[in-house]
Amino acid sequence: MNKIIPVLTMLAVIVVLWYAAAVKMNSQWAMDQAARAEVELTFGELVKDTLSQDRPKLPAPHQVVAELWETTVEKKITSKRSLVYHGWITLSATMLGFGIGTVAGIALAVGIVHNKAMDLGVMPWAIASQTIPILAIAPMIIVVLNSMGISGLIPKAIIAAYLSFFPVVVGMVKGLRAPDAMQLDLMKTYNASGGETFWKLRLPSSMPYLFASLKVAVAAALVGTIVAELPSGAVRGLGARLLSGSYYGQTIQIWSALFAAAALAAALVIIVGILEKVVLKRMGMAK
């Protein structure tokens, strides 16, 4: 509870700074317009103008909020201008990719834990591939898949899957190795088979690690989907809104798409966090 007041204070400071920056950055345009019309602007008029331009350099917070309200609540969700519609396009690709990536990641982790050659051969590459800017090649994957006749949801989901794959592999390998020698020895004294050890000891004890990496993975999947929507041709989704906003100088549209993406990311991470709490509590592992 003692966090709420400092956080709110910081947020208030940010909003104030934002308004100040908006006035400063947009004043050039306002002055030019006034000079052209040969009128003198008082300070009050200047501020008023900078906060209500159509294509400001930096839109004021209330303009972004108004745009968000207009494009989420007032527009029909089937409309091409509704952020809910674009958000849904992005969300569905993210969730598909996240699902594929998680399942594949867990499968590879199980293989790595049970096969020495795989552990020694694949693991260094899996870790090294984390240092490669994979996100930068997303457009290529999209175009190649397009030329093979695959378009729409699947290419975006593949990139999202790829990005969410590695955090899950690394976290899950750590988790499946979490039981210590004592616990493994106990299973041996019970004469447990490899499968039984896996289902009754390794898998349950990997859950905290799995959820920690799922939080990273779901955020990465969303970033992957948004970047995948950037290359030309994408007309739907939050990434496409960012791109078309930047083409036509619609700064308010960019900012509202950005906030929608942020809200989506936050919601996804929070949902995984709630699932984590519920599952760990049921398993008696809650802190």
């Binding site: 950055m25 350099k57 996100l135 939080k215 955020a219 969303l222 970033v223 948004i226 970047v227 939050l238 990434g239 960012l242 791109l243 906003g245 930047s246 100088g249 700064t251 960019i254 900012w255 798409a257 950005l258 993406a261 942020a262 990311a265 936050a266 991470v269």
Partner: peptide
């Protein structure tokens, strides 16, 4: 945790 790359178009404009 946010998709920060999204600010790229804004910063390119600035």
């Amino acid at each position: 945790a946010l998709p920060i790359v999204g600010i790229a178009p804004i910063l390119v404009m600035w």
